[in-house]
Design a protein around this nucleic acid. Sequence first.
DNA 1: ACCTGAACACCGTTCAAGT
DNA 2: ACCTGAACACCGTTCAAGT
Lengths: 236, 236
Amino acid sequence: MATRTRRSQRRTEALSRAGIVEAAVELLDGAGEGGLTFRALAERLATGPGAIYWHVANKGELLDAATDAVVAAALAVEPAESPGSPRDEIRVVALGLFDAIEEHPWLAAQLSTHLSRSPWGSVTPRIFESVGRQVPALGVPQDGWFTTTSALVHYILGAAGQNAANSASAGALGAGVGRTEFLDSVAKAWEALDPDEYPFTRAVADQLRDHDDREQFLAGIDLVLAGVTAHPPSGD
Amino acid sequence: MATRTRRSQRRTEALSRAGIVEAAVELLDGAGEGGLTFRALAERLATGPGAIYWHVANKGELLDAATDAVVAAALAVEPAESPGSPRDEIRVVALGLFDAIEEHPWLAAQLSTHLSRSPWGSVTPRIFESVGRQVPALGVPQDGWFTTTSALVHYILGAAGQNAANSASAGALGAGVGRTEFLDSVAKAWEALDPDEYPFTRAVADQLRDHDDREQFLAGIDLVLAGVTAHPPSGD
DNA sequence: ACCTGAACACCGTTCAAGT
DNA sequence: ACCTGAACACCGTTCAAGT
């Protein structure tokens, strides 16, 4: 919902926090974390740098707000759909975050650093709730809920962040360079490592070259879920 | 090995890349990522900002070098010790990284962003090798090695990063505020969430309050390992 | 109440000049 | 070969002044 509020031709209809955050996300998407500047933001909003400070305390708060907006959108799935099994629901939430990070690569750093810089903020509970809601139905005893959910969230954020960085690298290599060429160049580098120090890494270079990000990501989720089923954690 | 090279009383004995990186780590440890400045670094090394550029291409390369130095130290365990089971070895490696991130909180953001910004660099293979080396002995078929190791590394980086942020938050709250007070304040915030939207998060607020970081971290590792044992991944 | 825009302190990086 | 330090372009943030 809400796709209007398109900035019209020339002057804006008054500044708003929501509009500022929206413009900030666009700048971040377009030019990465370095692209978000109060001056660039002001120009895009046809105002002066100082004006933004009336709606937002500082750059940190702006980044937090941008993060929250994007995460909220990613987790806003239809509530009364066909429910699906708990595992499927967790996969849906995880993939939602995975896709959001792929679409907004700056999210990865934001989630891993600033997210828990203020866990009382809205982002952490949002993610925690979406994942954890499914955990009781997995057969985990109540005193293992926190541990289980934490493990899932940690894996999701770690893996999604890693993949975002990979995508960003591929793009940064050059305009025409795709994931395939990028992975191939990394695999070549791995194969050139010292055989005495890096036997394992060399041995899996081919698997790196051929892997699919999403498949890999889901396989990891399944791994954690398999562990939950095999040995449900309890808080002893 | 090598704990000398202490900068003596006044002038330095010529600049070196290693000395610059060492000073950079100290600045990062002392004041976070914002504390690393070419001017501050130059002052600490009793030189001018320009001098550093003769040994280091730019700030990004400096951060990468600092990251690599710290990670290499963390993974440099005694090679010919009592070998231990593969699970124990993985726990040792994981805890080594966990501790390193706790000691150098700036590492978390570095690992999640810049690490894979250049996976051909030395940091990724180092971590990958240390963890993956134990995977074959876990009974995973060869075509599942990459998937398994990736899942473990992703969990480790995600969880360690999260915990680093928690520690940093506790410290930032105030000089005298410890982890206990910090966790308590977050738990209180969770308990104050909307019961309709956040039933699960509210239900585990107590478990958040009482949890131990390292215990939790290891429980997550065991969860992934249990999944590996229960359903060894294969690359189909 | 909300916006403007100059000003301040600071930063990464460059580079002519020194030794 | 290696270091110095002034200079450039840029940034977050503040704030007196406007409407």
